[in-house]
Simulated assay, not measured.
Amino acid sequence: MPSTWWRMRGEARVGELRQYGVDQPMFLCLFAPGPSWDDVRALFEAWAAVRGPDLDGSRNAEAIGPLMDLGLTLHPVDVGTRLSCFRDCIPRIHGSTARLRR
C-alpha cells in the first residue's frame, strides 16, 4: 500500500493520511487537515465519540451513515489505486492520528 493518501471529497482535499506503522489489520497514520476538513470535521468527531459497547452496532451505524453519504475517497500520492471510503477501506480519525483498515 502507498504510504501517503489524500482524503478527497470530489475535487476538494479533506486531509492527508501518512502511514507510520501497522497494527494488523490497521494501518497507523498521522492526519493533517486539508482545506475542506472543516466541512466534515463534526461528522468524524461524532463517530469518534461513540464509545463503549454497541452490541447491535446501531450507534456506530448512526454515526457512520452521514460519512458514507459524503462519497469520500483516498487517493495515493505516489502510486496505487484510489480507494472508496467505507467500501474499500474504513478510515477512523482521532485528532492528529488515523487508523485505516483495508
Rank of each mutant, 00 (worst) to 15 (best):
W47R: 15
P91K: 06
H75Q: 15
P53E: 12
R87I: 13
I90F: 15
V50A: 04
V50M: 07
W47N: 10
G21H: 00
T81P: 05
F44D: 03
V50I: 13
D54M: 07
E16N: 01
P35G: 05
G80H: 08
R92H: 12
Y20L: 07
F27M: 12
G80R: 06
Q19S: 11
D38K: 10
R82K: 11
R87L: 11
M26P: 00
R18S: 14
A48S: 13
I93Y: 02
L55F: 13
V79M: 11
G65S: 15
V14M: 03
C85A: 12
A12T: 06
T97G: 06
V22T: 10
G95K: 08
P53D: 12
M68G: 14
T4G: 00
V14A: 01
H75P: 01
G10H: 07
A32N: 02
R13Y: 03
P2F: 05
R9L: 08
D78F: 06
G21Q: 03
P91D: 04
A48V: 02
L70W: 03
G65L: 14
D56M: 10
G57Q: 11
G52N: 05
R59E: 15
P25D: 02
G65D: 13
D69N: 11
W47Q: 15
V40F: 02
V77I: 11
V22W: 08
S96I: 02
G15L: 00
S3T: 13
G71L: 05
V22D: 11
I64S: 12
W6F: 10
P91C: 09
W6E: 15
V50H: 07
F86K: 03
V50P: 07
C29A: 14
L72N: 03
E62C: 03
P2C: 08
L28W: 00
G15T: 01
T73Y: 01
H94P: 00
Q19A: 14
P66M: 04
R9S: 09
A61W: 08
W6H: 15
A32L: 06
T4F: 03
G80F: 03
F86I: 05
R92V: 10
G65K: 14
D69F: 01
L74D: 07
S36Q: 09
T97A: 08
W6C: 00
R13V: 13
A32R: 14
M68N: 09
E62D: 12
V77L: 15
V22S: 10
S3E: 14
G10R: 04
A32V: 11
E16I: 13
S3P: 00
